[in-house]
Nucleic acid binder design. Structure first.
Lengths: 153, 153
DNA sequence: GTACTTGCAAAGATTTTGCAAGTAT
DNA sequence: ATACTTGCAAAATCTTTGCAAGTAC
């Protein structure tokens, strides 16, 4: 999943190296969903004097434009991913990898069930947490092979 | 759902007025899931000189003891509720009321689907967001009948 | 050339921590 | 009596904002 610069222009926003960098980091993260902090760190590994506020501002901007999607994060602030449509995730509790799944629990039956009480359904979230195949191999509690840290590009 | 003082003692922790207050607020909230800030505010309405740090500390402690459950909150910090077993919520985007639902998307099929990739399922979350029947009546965007504010006991 | 962006530094907001005083058991 | 808790104030985080300088178009 890559976002090219055209998509930025089409949205009526200027293509700056900082914005490209953010989008590239998230694109390369592929199966990752990164926190703002992680994006700042990875961006600094490439462009050391990029400002954190620039990144925070752009994460907001790009999310509003619909290029990024914000997920909540069990209390660790927001996590961001390239917006590639509606889907849910398997999230590894050790390495924080997030891989998309096709299954969506919001069937017509479930929606109707919710609506029985007069509730108007607007949105939903679903997330499965556990341990990915890589992290199951080692010790689940260990701090071993955290693949989020490091340069990642 | 009420937590009596015995449960605190059984967990090997002292029964202080502050802890009772926190549990009472959350018990009375019934269908509410409150943020730390809301709990602080409600607590202060009753015991004005209670310290916010006491509440933060106790929310942590009570969660570790399993008396409370922490939910994440689309970026607004944690929300807390009395731990009354596994269930999911319909959350109103206007008044933030959270009502429990019985339906759980984690069927055996879904679990197996997740496990096909070698993922070990540990946990999951599911939340339906929208507008509760009370809030549908009025203007959804208005700030009108926020029933979280106020003294609530 | 001009409006939008950036970096910096400072301000905000929220949560955590150290420590002496207070309290439940 | 004593170990656990509290309140206070200070620190630590994380995120936002104001503004002058810089940049994409």
């Amino acid at each position: 999943m890559t976002v090219n610069s055209n998509e930025l222009q089409v949205k009526g926003c200027k293509v700056t190296p900082q914005r490209r960098l953010i989008l590239d980091i998230l694109s390369n993260a592929e199966s990752h969903v990164l926190t703002a902090e992680e994006i700042v760190n990875q961006a600094r590994a490439i462009q050391p004097n990029i400002s954190a506020s620039t990144i925070y501002r752009n994460l907001g901007t790009l999310t509003e434009l619909g290029l990024l999607k914000r997920l909540d994060s069990m209390g660790e602030g927001w996590r961001y991913e390239i917006n590639s449509g509606h889907h849910h995730h398997l999230v590894c509790l050790k390495c924080h990898n997030a891989v998309s799944i096709d299954f969506c629990p919001m069937s017509r039956e479930v929606k109707e069930l919710a609506e029985q009480s007069g509730f108007e359904v607007a949105d939903h979230s679903f997330e499965i947490r556990g341990y990915c195949i890589n992290c199951r191999v080692g010790d689940k509690k260990g701090e071993g092979a955290q693949d989020l840290v490091g340069d990642e590009r």
